[in-house]
Amino acid sequence: MIGFVVKRLLYNIPVLLGVALITMLLFNVAAGDPVSIKLGKIAKEGQRKALAKKMGLDKSLVAQYGDFLVQTVTLDFGDSWNDNTPVRKIFFRGVGPTLSLSIPAFLAGAFLSIALALLVAFHRGGWLDRFMTMGAIAGISISSLVYILVLQWLLADRFKLFPIWGYEYGLGAFRFVALPMLIWVLLSVGQDLRYFRTVALEEIGRDYVRTARSKGLSENRILFKHVLRNCSIPIITRLVITVPFLITGSFLLEIFFGIPGLGSTLYTAIQNSDFPIIKAFTMLGTVMFILFNILSDVLYAYFDPRIRLS
């Protein structure tokens, strides 16, 4: 197991180098002149040179790439161009609000979609199954922007059930994240339900279910005791893979509801051409993605003894 993890980590080093290269080329080369973006086009030549030197842009591209790699490894991405705060500080400021929204929403969504998937698998072929399958496909066809706009307008503006905008640290946060959470669950349930239903139906068609049935077990017992346990493997691995998206997943919701999390931070950074923040987020997102991918493989092998990691 440890050997596998080490091997996967080593294998992903070139991947990370590649991502760093893409990110650096995008922002240091293709994006135009960062110095003009920061100073505006009418700055004096001396000022420009000094700033380019301070930002390390007077060096060769190879040296700039090296700098960026050092930043990634030390997790020190310098200061934001906008307000000169260290990127690290900005990141830690945003993590709390983001997670206060995304973790409960993720758990609620996962629980709901698994429960619904089992329910429709139990009634497979019946009207409930058909209704839910149609509902799920209609649900995923609505744009996330429309969900957010309509529900915010209806539930917060019209019926005043939730605050429209804002955030409060501590326990008061719940009041503000409740509606975004609801929308998140709605957004994720359609997609997940479709996937989990397929998984459940595939398991139900297997021989051990027929055996269980022929020895006279009740449908309930088969579903919850046998099928659920076998389904848990693809379910868990899918859920683990989506964990990194808990950070980026709330991007639109944070913007719309004024939650000062990582999504809003990124949005502001994009509007202000704040490259250090965008670059840092890209690298951190990639690292998270790689780590959770490995974790999901390990869990897969842990829960399913037929799979050997090699």
Binding site: G18, G32, T248, L266, I270, T282
Partner: peptide, 26 residues
């Protein structure tokens, strides 16, 4: 290698970075 690299960047970030660069840059 190429697709593992591209797939490792979170989709939203990659998309935004690309769109942003195409709009602003050279």
């Amino acid at each position: 290698y190429l697709y593992s690299t591209v797939a490792s960047i979170p989709y939203l970030l990659l998309m935004l970075a690309f769109a942003f660069i195409l709009k602003q840059g050279h």
